[in-house]
Write a protein that binds this DNA or RNA. Structure first.
Length: 485
RNA sequence: GGCGGCGUACCCAAGUGGCUAAGGGAGAGGUCUGCAAAACCUUUAUGCAGCGGUUCGAAUCCGCUCGCCGCCUCCA
């Protein structure tokens, strides 16, 4: 299995520190507001990575933190007129609501910054003792000049960064790039006691403390959005490796951004959609599918049109599932042998799992993996069109269903029954008609069709179509579905 | 200014040295159907931003040019 490592800038063979075990840490969110779709991307990417690693048989320990104390939380508390911890609690709850909807699983450990203050203070003390950090007026800073490898992740050197001149000037810092490990709190701000007086931890130190505590001083994978690469992850490496004297994370994995009109989606630009806004219009599987249909390191342009296309793709999937289930349900009086079409199909089926894994093994190429899923979908439909009749043919289709749901479990999509899918679409698209109404219309139309009253039959079909319901006449019945896309 | 990435069909998107350049959406034609829908088949890049170079061979490696974006400040 290969993973692109930001640290080396190359795809590398993934070899865990301890055979068969994987420790993975992903930077979570600061709980001060509702999450937007960019947060969803990061969460889904690492969700799929952990699911796949587990599928491959690794014993995975996945840690994802909550930053629950920070300037933004404090500001938000002022705005909302509630305490900072109430803000954190509120948006932690909102985060879980969003992630549960999106099918993002819980991490094995979900540490909070505020629960690791003691660990952070210990590390800061250690860094001061080793001469990597210094105190100034109740603040503690990390001295980047003392860590010679500073910049190795983001591939820049100190001089260049200072030349960039966008670093904040702070008289108390020796080097403008030095970053706070501990910040003295101002009057009225939340604070904890420390050897340097009341204050709170800097942002980066929490991830060092929590990853080391839960995964050890050296662990396998550290992930997050590409915007965390600098300074956050660079600083994490500096303070962690300075403190332990050992390599920190071995593979650094960064997901790309979501863009709107080709610009990065961000809070500050205001060009974002919250997860809740998107889920008001699209099924969670559509959102996941959309995000996984592009490689995780590439940017994704977000638009309703893209989501509608994803919806059409998923609809194609469920339409095929219906056909497969129909066949299996009605498979009786089957002949023993495998048809010729079945023999061809069997070969395609055998290569599917291999293709899927090959794609996922290559730096989690979900886009290619989904391509293979749809290749199988086409082969399945082609097979069904040949009117298979053997007992073995039925077994093949049963196997197809299993393989597809296995792939679906890894990506955590395609988990609905077709009926659930259409009910979800009905709800999201505000179809102003009930299932019962539809059934009645279908019976009425069946009557008309029996008497070859095509005008009436077509009128009823048109009436439903105008409401977004498509009818499909089959051999022995008429099915309905919601217009997708 | 420094560093990094991207540019593949009408749209989205895999592919990063070698069989016919995946897959999805959209369009056109066909099969099936009372007609549809779905499905399937055919079709839509002798071509991968442009120009050079390396190589027996390049979308894929190198150089230059053009265009777009990101990071260097909180940010998934």
């Amino acid at each position: 299995m290969k993973i692109f490592n930001t640290l080396t800038g190359r795809k590398e063979e993934f070899v865990p520190l301890t055979p068969n075990k994987v420790g993975i840490y992903a930077c979570g969110v600061t709980v001060y507001d509702h999450c937007h779709i960019g947060h969803a991307r990061s969460a889904i990417v690492f969700d799929v990575i952990t699911r796949y690693l587990r599928y491959k048989g690794f014993d995975v320990k996945y840690v994802r933190n909550f930053t629950d104390i920070d300037d933004k939380i404090i500001n938000r508390a002022r705005e909302e007129g509630i305490t900072w911890d109430a803000v954190a609690a509120k948006y932690t709850g909102e985060y879980y609501k969003d992630m549960d909807m999106l099918g993002v699983g819980r991490a094995d450990v979900e540490p909070k910054a505020t629960e690791h203050i003691a660990e952070m203070i210990n590390i800061i003390k250690g860094l001061i003792d080793k001469g990597y950090a210094y105190e100034a007026e109740g603040n503690v800073y990390f001295s980047v000049d003392r860590f010679s490898e500073y910049g190795k992740l983001s591939k820049r050197n100190r001089e260049e960064m200072i030349a960039g001149a966008r670093v904040e000037v702070d008289e108390r810092k020796i080097n403008p790039l030095d970053f706070a490990l501990w910040k003295r709190s101002k009057e009225g701000e939340p604070s904890r006691e420390s050897p340097w007086g009341p204050g709170r931890p800097g942002w980066h130190i929490e991830c060092t403390a929590m990853s080391i505590k839960h995964l050890g001083e050296t662990f396998d994978i550290h992930g997050g959005g590409a915007d965390l690469l600098f300074p956050h992850h660079e600083n994490e490496i500096a303070q962690s490796e300075a403190y332990t004297g050992k390599p920190f994370a071995r593979y650094w994995v960064h997901n790309g951004f979501i863009t709107i009109d080709r610009e990065k989606m961000s809070k500050s630009l205001g060009n974002f959609f919250t997860i809740k806004e998107v889920l008001d219009k699209f099924d969670p599987e559509v959102v996941r599918f959309f995000l996984l249909s592009t490689h995780y390191r590439s940017p994704i342009e977000f638009s309703d049109e893209q989501l509608r296309e994803a919806e059409s793709s998923i609809d194609r999937y469920y339409s095929t599932v219906i056909r497969v289930e129909d066949f299996i349900e009605r498979a009786n009086n089957l002949k023993d042998e495998l048809s010729n079409a079945g023999k061809i199909f069997e070969n395609r089926l055998i290569s599917f799992r291999q293709n899927f894994e090959q794609a996922m093994d290559d730096d989690f190429n979900t886009a290619l993996a989904l391509g293979h899923v749809f290749e199988l979908i086409r082969e399945t439909n082609r097979f069904l069109d040949k009117r298979p009749s053997g007992l073995k043919d039925g077994e093949l289709l049963l196997k197809t269903g299993e393989l597809l749901s296995e792939a679906g479990n890894i990506l955590n999509i395609f988990n609905k029954t077709p009926r659930e899918w259409y009910l979800s679409l009905m709800k999201l698209k505000n179809i102003g008609i009930t299932e019962k109404d539809i059934s009645e219309k279908i019976s009425e139309r069946q009557g008309a069709r029996k008497h070859k009253n095509w005008n009436l039959a077509d009128a009823i079909r048109k009436e439903l179509e105008d409401k977004g319901i498509i009818l499909e006449d089959k051999k022995d019945r008429t099915d309905w579905k919601v217009m997708a896309g």
